[in-house]
Nucleic acid binder design. Structure first.
Lengths: 143, 143
DNA sequence: CCATTTTCTTGAATCAGTCAAGAATCCAGC
DNA sequence: GCTGGATTCTTGACTGATTCAAGAAAATGG
């Protein structure tokens, strides 16, 4: 778990000013991986008191731009954020409840990054989303 | 290119009623791959006269559910539709202009479908999105 | 401690997509 | 061909995530 000081260092390291909303939001992302914006706003308010939702949106965008958090948004879902960045990992998403779990890349270090025909695009990332049912929904829905 | 009759057969084959808005929408998806809902509404109105946007939303959902079209929605984009279904292909998305192109799967018939740790999810699909810059944006932005 | 710049608050706006109720349409069966 | 019943379309309002804008507050360098 990251302490407040660690979070401060991360922010300064990214040339970002250290403010309460930022510390709180970044901490919340670390503590609640794959949380949506609304949940993060809730977590921030629990730990640090009232903060405007706009501030959290701004902070999350700044953190994403700085590369301190990653934003993911599976089809039909709202934006979610996670602190695991820099490694090449992917996600499994439950079609029923929308829960997200991490999946390490199955094919080496720069996996799947070779498209069969790249149409002359300059590709810099291959994002893999696995779709299915989580164990709970599987049990609830299946036989 | 599909004729009206072909489209009719597709609809009947999927046990869907054949209505003008449906024929028009399905035709539009065939003629404009990766078009967003707004564009499809526009195309439908050009070919068949006024249709409510609600009807197009309903039709696209019905077609998607029936498996006649596929809905894709890259992060930060609105929903887009394509008629290529059933084959396992993926997409390249331009980070700058949002244009989408098809990419055949690089790794065989059920590609990338093997997650390194599936967290006991019952996975039924692996969706790959390649991110980068299209040739045009590459030229416009890069040196 | 001050000035400058960035960030936060407040409040309104946008936009894709959805909900709901009634009118129109499709199609199976006569 | 008509008719009944179910599905689909029209109209119009609404939701909810996200963004815009302007001024107040706070953080950092000097």
């Amino acid at each position: 778990m990251s302490t407040t000081l660690d979070v401060e260092k991360l922010l300064r390291g990214a040339s970002l000013r250290v403010t309460r909303p930022r510390v709180a939001a970044l901490t919340a992302v670390y503590e609640h991986p794959h949380a949506d914006t609304e949940s993060i706003i809730g977590a921030v308010r629990e730990n640090f008191g009232e903060v405007s939702h706009q501030a959290v949106y701004d902070v999350l965008r700044a953190l994403t731009t700085a590369g301190l958090v990653r934003r993911i948004q599976p089809s039909g879902s709202v934006a979610r954020y996670e602190s695991r960045v820099g490694d090449n990992h992917h996600h499994v998403v439950c079609r029923s409840c929308g829960v997200v779990a991490d999946v390490d890349c199955a094919v080496g270090t720069t996996p799947c990054l070779t498209a069969s025909d790249d149409h002359d695009f300059a590709i810099d990332e291959a994002e893999v989303t696995y779709w299915g049912l989580c164990p709970d929904c599987s049990t609830a829905l299946g036989s």
